[in-house]
Amino acid sequence: MEPLAPFSVVAPTSLAAALAALAEPEARLVAGGTDLMVNLRHGIGAPRTLVDARGVAELRGIAAQGGGLAIGAAVTLAELAEDARVGGRWPALAEAARLVAAPAHRAAATVGGNLCLDTRCTFYNRSAWWRAANGFCLKHRGSVCHVAPTGNRCHAAFSGDLAAPLLAYGATVEIAGPAGARRQPLGALYREDGAAHLTLAAGEIVTSVQLPPQPLPARYAKARARQAIDFPLAGVAVALGMAAGKVAALRVALTGTNASPFLLAGVEALTGAVPDAAWREQLGKLVQKQVTPMRTTLLAAQYRRRAAAALAMRLAAGLAGEA
């Protein structure tokens, strides 16, 4: 097999040591490695040092926090999916975790790695020789985007599943770096640029995710090419609260369709109404307007647009029916 370009590995046990190791030139954080190792094997990036996040005490464990939950970035997706508190009160998050990859991936894959997953594109997730034969592309080493050759930006899709339910639940993330620690809404971790989709500064680490208390009833669903195991072509989380037969609160989050996961804007217009067929059509239209899938997957962009809308409508109908 093709060997990896050499790197050394450090395994710090404290956050301070991890930040110091990441401050060294060409150091890169690795957690489960289920995304990064694949990219390294494809010749994307050649770090001199990998800093293993999994032994860092501050990134471990799931803890109750003011009625909500704080989830360490190094918690594995297997742990997340099996946690009784998560499954009981934040079922959309447990569902999303179970829908990521296969068991052998989930035993290694982490929450932090899922949130900081590289964006994906059919011209990018390829071996080095395949991409070289194609002249590489704008996202890495090349100058042209093969998806939109007349433009000058990358449309690779953010395809992590957890971000959608976490956005719908109103999660925040805590970030530590050379300049100290901060907490921000999860949405602020991302920007709509496939080649630079994370707003993290050099040397920064996502340390934990906070779920606020009193979650709305919520569900997550994804469309994928292979039902057994696949990234989302479109992933949708809907959180919906009912009062007296009308929609009292609504949050819809999407992943897999754009360069960043995002909360659907304009849902206020849909609250205070009876969620009938016409209401669902309106929701579907709102989704179709805001998703911007490009031809970064083998399936047509239009399919992903419609799938996103259909999933949102189906989930909303289910939640309204249960209430």
Binding site: M37, A104, A107
Partner: peptide, 13 residues
């Protein structure tokens, strides 16, 4: 005792 992928796992792990 847990299934893992040897192609994504470093020997050092």
């Amino acid at each position: 005792g847990v299934a893992r992928l040897a192609c994504l796992t470093r020997t050092g792990e």
